[in-house]
Structure formats: C-alpha cells, structure tokens
Design a protein around this nucleic acid. Sequence first.
DNA 1: ACTCAAGTGGGGAAAAGTGGGGAGAAGTGG
DNA 2: CCACTTCTCCCCACTTTTCCCCACTTGAGT
Lengths: 145, 145
Amino acid sequence: MSGASFVGEYLHTLDAKGRVALPAKFRETLGPKFIIARGLDKCLFVYPNEEWEQVMEKLKTIPISSKDARHFTRYFLSGATEAEPDKQGRVVIPQNLRDYAGLNKDVFILGVGSRIEIWDKSKWEETKLGLEEEFSVLAESVAGI
Amino acid sequence: MSGASFVGEYLHTLDAKGRVALPAKFRETLGPKFIIARGLDKCLFVYPNEEWEQVMEKLKTIPISSKDARHFTRYFLSGATEAEPDKQGRVVIPQNLRDYAGLNKDVFILGVGSRIEIWDKSKWEETKLGLEEEFSVLAESVAGI
DNA sequence: ACTCAAGTGGGGAAAAGTGGGGAGAAGTGG
DNA sequence: CCACTTCTCCCCACTTTTCCCCACTTGAGT
C-alpha cells in the first residue's frame, strides 16, 4: 500500500534564484505537485501529495484549544509550501525554508523511503560522519534488523 | 471533502489606509467574501465562508447558560468582520482588529490549514524563535511524524 | 566520437504587491 | 434640511518578484 519509496543521495546546487533541480529518479513518483516543509534535524522534508494528506489528517485530530498544539500546527504549516517543478524539474525553495535548513549553494537531496530530504551540503556531511560510527549500534536499537 | 488547506508564510505591509494584500495563493480558496475575526494568541483569524459555518456550528453547541461561554461568544463574534477584497486583492482591517493584534506596518500572513492568520511582524518573529526550539519535542508528542 | 538526458545559468514577459489620487457615501453640526 | 467634513472604496500607476522559456555544459551510454 504505502506508496512512495525513495532511495539515494544526490548532490545538487541551489542557484541564485533559489531553485534546485530534483533528481530525475524522484520526479515521476513525486508527481506534478507536492509539499516541502520544515523537517526534523534542520533539514527539509518533501512529501508526495498522498503522504501529505496523511500528515494533515493527523493534524486535524488535534484540538485547537491546546496551546502547544496550536503553536505546533502554526509553525509546521506556515513553514510548508506547495511546490510544482518547472519544465526542467526544478522547484523554488522559499526564503524561510532556506533559512531554516541553512541552505547554501550546495545541497544534498536524499531519498528516505516515503519522503525526500534536502540538506545543506556541509551539514549533511557532518551528520553522516557521526552516523557512520553509530550505524551498527543504531541498527540494533531501532529494530531487529 | 475537507475544504481549505492553507500553507506558507508571507511578509506583507499594512498601508496608511489600513489595507493588506492577501497572498495570491490564498485568494482562490478564500473566494470573494470571507470572515476576519479575533484569534487566539493575539493574532487575527481569517476563515473562508465554509469554514466559518463550521465554527458557527460549534459555537451553537455551547450552552448559553455558562457565563464563560457567553463572554467568549460575545467577544469573538462582535470582533468579526465580513471582508471582501478590492480589485488588487487587498482587504481593509478595521481599527479594532488592528488594535487587538497590535498590527503595525509589517505583518506576517500565515497559512494554517483550514484558516489564515495575520500577525504583527515582530510578534510572530518572537513567537517563532521560541517554537523552533520546541519543534522536535512537539513533533513527537503531538503527532508521530 | 556522437547522441541523448540531466543539471545549470540567465533573459524577459507577466503577475503580484504597494502607494496614492479622487469620486461618492456616510456621518456631523448648524 | 442643507452644508461641511470625514471616511470608504474604486481605480490608475509604479516597483518588485515570479516564473516561463531558451541555451549551454557535462557525463553516461552506444
């Protein structure tokens, strides 16, 4: 059932107009319209529409009367954007999202199963170094892989 | 099905006449007429008509016998305005609402799912700073994203 | 070596956002 | 009831941003 399944690591560039080309391999699965939002660990999450619907469903169940919930929803949704790529397969990343993820010229685009992530190059390289060491440890704690 | 779904963050200006341009992306969904009301956390809520109907439905279910409820309803509804944008897509924000939200020249307009919010620039920036730190914590507790 | 697809850069038309003038309606005082 | 002021709203004009399109570069495959 669960639709998309992205994998891979791509190094692309953010041009002067704030655009990045999405990896060709991801385009078909993403479809003509999708969502870019603030993600955990200061990267951006890119969701195909179906995945986004599910996230929205969850958010709707949250009562507006809880202050934490209101704030979370506000922050999360105001930091999201509906994107559609141009003829060359590029999307514009809005300024606020670029700031959030600290994106400079070079960015990594990662396939992470049901979503895609966009990272600043150096930030991902650092993170990755850390992960390499922990990898086997993590594998055990996460699941019985 | 579930109607509107606003996302994004836009920095616009309130001009000398008390007008703001609504983001072009929101206009179609909002339609030609909509409601602006006092919102929670000292910002303004903007609802498309359908969403407003639902809010009204909820209010009706509140027992009039509760004093808190009466006060809330009174305050909430008396501060609401029906707005329709001019040819340029701008709406006038009445003085009482401007006061309530402490709006100055620069305002942020946020898409928050079923509604839009209007914030004074500096107030939202402060609020947002606090939220950035809590984001990962809230993400876990609120939704299993 | 040639071809084709993917990624990158940039120019220019169109749209979005902003500011302000002026006619008409509404409110106020004589 | 009329004259005056004030406020609202409709429209025009300017600026900035967006996005659509064309062209170049690189690298992989045949």
